[in-house]
């Protein structure tokens, strides 16, 4: 990690801790800066970017480290979100506390990861991609239809009134005033999510530089050779699926509690593809690249949404093109251009 800071602060003159302090302070005051300059909506967008970053780091374990192309990754996000929604909402009348749900979501999503990973172990490359895609769709279709004969997921309507995180009886979605500063729900969640993201980054770095991380990369580079080096490729691949799924599960839980509402619509194939784009665009296998890719893809389209209308009005006199579709056109163009100019991603490993 210190390398990163050295890059920013030029090493020699400034001791590394100056960099740490600077970044910590920046991260702490960021939501207030964002709110002051761009409004509260942007703090929420920032929060969603943090959730996506967790999700992308989870997928990076599967795709980036182990080289297993997973196009149904959003299913684990969905599992995490619905686990939270079912355990902390009026749907079943359960209201478990967050410190109980997070580990449950972690484990449930991990189990799903193993269950969905197990049948695919013999598949390579694009066959794996299409099967995982199928699994992702299956999960979504079940969520969409499990409202009868027994109502579990509430079908396409989704589950509402999901409990937010409560610490000592205080709900994080409410606004609080601390030291004269107003902490909205978006602010409070920002810190929770930031903490979880940093924890995820920490775990990813540790895993990457371990015996298991090396085994994953070995499988990615040459599965046969990895076997010949005594790696139990079946178990190590399942572990990658499970770890990736678990992070997705936590991110999903956070999504459910932050939004207070989940429905199958949030877990469509396009979302899986979006997360994959974040990983690949940023630089597959490189944790910092993945985070960069996530923030670009989570924030850029929002910026385009905000600016494309006014710019057209100022330059062309009226809004010629619907800002929503223009945003998607530019998004598609950006994906193509970035890949053409930097095929290994914006910030590749090595």
């Amino acid at each position: 990690m210190s390398k990163l800071f050295l890059m920013f602060f030029g090493g020699r003159k400034n001791p590394v801790w100056v960099g740490y302090v600077f970044i910590t302070v920046a991260l702490i005051i960021l939501p207030f800066l964002v709110e002051a300059s761009m409004g509260r909506t942007w703090v929420r967008i920032l929060d969603f970017a943090l959730i996506y970053a967790m999700l992308a780091l989870g997928l990076n374990i599967v795709v980036g480290f182990a080289g297993l192309l997973d196009l149904g990754y959003i299913a684990f996000y969905a599992v995490g979100a619905y686990t939270w929604a079912l355990l902390a909402s009026p749907q079943f009348g359960l209201h478990l506390p967050f410190w109980a749900i997070i580990p449950i979501g972690f484990v449930v999503a991990g189990i799903f990861g193993v269950l969905l990973g197990a049948p695919t172990l013999r598949l390579r490359g694009d066959y794996l991609a299409i099967v995982t895609l199928g699994f992702g769709e299956i999960v979504r279709i079940f969520l969409n239809n499990l409202d009868h004969p027994i109502n579990i997921t509430n079908g396409p309507v989704g589950i509402n009134l999901i409990d937010p995180i409560q610490i000592a009886g205080v709900s994080l979605t409410k606004s609080h005033e601390i030291l004269g500063l107003e902490f909205s729900g978006a602010h409070s969640y920002y810190y929770v999510l930031l903490f979880l993201l940093l924890a995820t980054v920490f775990v990813c770095i540790r895993l990457e530089n371990s015996r298991l991380g090396r085994a994953w990369v070995a499988i990615r580079e040459d599965e046969t050779a990895a076997q010949a080096m005594g790696i139990n490729t079946r178990n190590v691949k399942l572990l990658a699926f499970a770890m990736g799924a678990s992070f997705g599960g936590i991110a999903g839980g956070m999504f459910a509690s932050f939004q207070g509402f989940v429905s199958p619509e949030s877990f469509i194939l396009l979302e899986s593809i979006m997360v994959l784009c974040m990983v690949v665009l940023g630089g597959m296998g490189n944790i910092w690249g993945v985070i960069l890719g996530t923030f670009l893809l989570a924030i850029l389209p929002e910026v385009l949404r905000d600016v494309s209308g006014p710019i057209q009005e100022n330059v062309l006199g009226r809004v010629w093109l619907d800002p929503e579709s223009l945003r998607m056109v530019l998004f598609g163009l950006a994906l193509i251009l970035v890949m053409l100019l930097r095929p290994s991603g914006l910030w590749p490993k090595r």
């Binding site: 895993l207 015996r211 298991l212 990369v217 580079e221 080096m229 790696i231």
Partner: peptide
Amino acid sequence: LFGTMTGLENVMVGCHVRTNIGVVGA
């Protein structure tokens, strides 16, 4: 060989089978 890994890392992968630290340890 594992192409993108360094020479040293390649050999470290070879040690996999005689070592056993798992996820928690990592």
